[in-house]
Amino acid sequence: MNTSLDIKKTYKLYIDGKFSRTESGRYIQWVDSKNNQTINFCHASRKDFRNAVQASRNAFNNWNNFSGYNRGQILYRIAEMLDSRKEQFISELILQGKSKKKSIQEVKQSIDRLVYYAGWSDKFQQIFSRVNPVSTPYYNFSSPEPTGVVSVIAPKNSYLLGFISVIVPAVVGGNTVVVLASEDNPLCAISFSEVLHSSDVPNGVINILSGYCNELAGHFSSHMDVNAVINCSSDLKDSELIRKNSSLNVKRVFDYESIDWTHVDSQDPYLIMDCQEVKTTWHPIGY
């Protein structure tokens, strides 16, 4: 007789390094396309988002003060952890309706993408910095610094690769993020939080919510403590609302909706630069 119980997993949000339930107590039912099993995901509310922004803001200074090299090491660690759990992610992609071949391909590309940006971590700042020629006796130089707290609406159709590809460029540049997982298929993103949890990413640097875009887009873009929004929603109403709300505190808004994340050209140091502000310093010569 088999006496062991079925362990039904509870999928939670990932806020401030903790796996918390939504404060609203609401759930989204999701049925996997293979076994017709029902899974409950948290249906995040504006208060969950607020808590996540607070966590991101608190984490920002610390993360920004990590050396680029150190951030790279941590990203590489994420890649290692993902690699060691790739079977899980492949089977989850299959549950979400992808073919086995495509799933294997997607997990492999996701790991590669993490390694790609880990490599940029201590290089982009030098490459995008410059010394500016001025005619007065000053050194004049410009260098990029992170924008701050970034809210991200992850791609609907690229559950793992797209999810990683939108958040990692912001994170490698020293920003902290609050990200809404694909609303149709959040499974991989929620499991990815377990990868993050075992990767030395400081609490609050990456916060992951599951919920509905049309409910949260307004809050993602109107919160005054958010400095940039990356939007991958194809809904024109969402995009319009995000642009309108972002004017409140002049958030940077980026639309990544049309990017094909499986294409090699979609990995790009200029995506890191999207969430960077250029600081120019004048320093007198001779001191």
Binding site: R50, M224, D225
Partner: peptide
């Protein structure tokens, strides 16, 4: 106003 505020302001 309806939206969350930032201590920056």
């Amino acid at each position: 106003k309806g939206n969350y505020q930032s201590s920056n302001y």
